[in-house]
């Protein structure tokens, strides 16, 4: 029962972890006074260069809050969170620091309909990100040229450059969001349910694109998802969160092939597959412990 999952280094290039979380905790004030909500509780993990780490859990498990703390969208209540050895737990004080942080960790949101500026053309969206992160070196023309290259690399050719987000499909918008993230040349991209809202046919294309990106450059993914099949396809390691805590961790393939922890087992048992029948939650738990 108590199989331990050693902390393994799985990044293609190994080396020191880029992201380290130690005893991470996030407490939100609750709806009632003196009754706070503990969203994240004692979460520790590390993300190595060039690997994909999945955070798996149901809604309310705290997986998105972890990611939001990493990019500074939420403050850290307690614990340590560092990127390349620099602590992010205290928050940013200067604009320059915020930019540097953004250059290291980029975020792709679930909903490609609300995460892009509807008044900017696709080329501008990406060029803005290029210009912001390239420092003083890049001229406007250079930024535009670079934006075109990046858009091309995510499968959006010339004809998309002057389009507005509302003229694109969900899959194309998500490609723009990925291109915008790549424009910062980040070490880490957080993909927060980034393929959850897409049709199966589009989802396959985006998952392939994410694999291609990783084959071409050094980048790590923190892949947040509730979909175990998608997680199996894309991630090297995974951690499983339940009610703010990490309850299971290990190599994705092993953890899914032979889940030991009851919660991981019940999550796996609930995935529709050939021969599967839906069962009530109570029975799911029974099946999982059997």
């Amino acid at each position: 029962m108590n199989r331990t999952h050693p902390v393994e280094r799985t990044g293609a290039s190994g080396g020191d972890p880029i992201v380290v979380a130690r005893g991470l905790r996030k407490v939100f004030p609750g709806p009632v006074k003196d009754d706070p909500v503990i969203a994240v509780d004692d979460v520790s993990f590390e993300l190595y260069p060039n690997e994909c780490l999945a955070i798996v859990g149901e809604s309310g498990s705290g997986k998105t809050t972890v990611a939001r703390m990493l990019v500074g969208l939420e403050t850290v209540t307690e614990g340590e969170l560092s990127v390349r050895g620099e602590s992010r737990a205290k928050g940013v004080k200067h604009l320059a620091d915020r930019r540097r942080w953004a250059r290291e960790v980029q975020y792709v949101f679930q909903d490609p309909y609300s995460s892009l500026n509807g008044r900017q053309r696709v080329g501008e969206i990406v060029a803005t990100s290029v210009a912001l992160h390239a420092g003083r070196g890049a001229t406007r023309t250079e930024a535009r040229g670079r934006a075109r290259e990046i858009l091309d690399s995510v499968g959006l050719g010339e004809r998309f450059v002057d389009k507005f987000p509302h003229q694109l499909s969900g899959g194309q918008r998500q490609r723009v969001a990925i291109a915008r993230a790549l424009a910062a040349d980040p070490a880490v991209i957080v993909l927060d349910e980034a393929v959850a809202a897409l049709d199966v046919s589009i989802q396959a294309q985006i998952l392939n694109l994410l694999a291609d990106i990783r084959a071409e450059r050094e980048v790590s993914y923190l892949f947040i998802s509730h979909d175990l099949a998608v997680v199996n396809q894309i991630s090297d390691r995974m951690i499983v969160m339940e009610q703010g805590r990490v309850v299971d961790r290990g190599r994705t393939a092993e953890l899914l092939a032979d889940p030991v922890h009851p919660y991981t087992r019940s999550l796996r048992a609930a995935v529709p597959r050939p021969g599967w029948k839906p069962v009530r939650r109570e029975r799911l738990a029974v099946q999982a412990t059997a």
């Binding site: 998952l207 199996n232 796996r268």
Partner: peptide, 20 residues
Amino acid sequence: IELLGARPSIDERVDRLPVL
């Protein structure tokens, strides 16, 4: 047939997902 093939599987991982 193509739609069924494009869905990732929880049991096995493929190099590339077949695209429709």
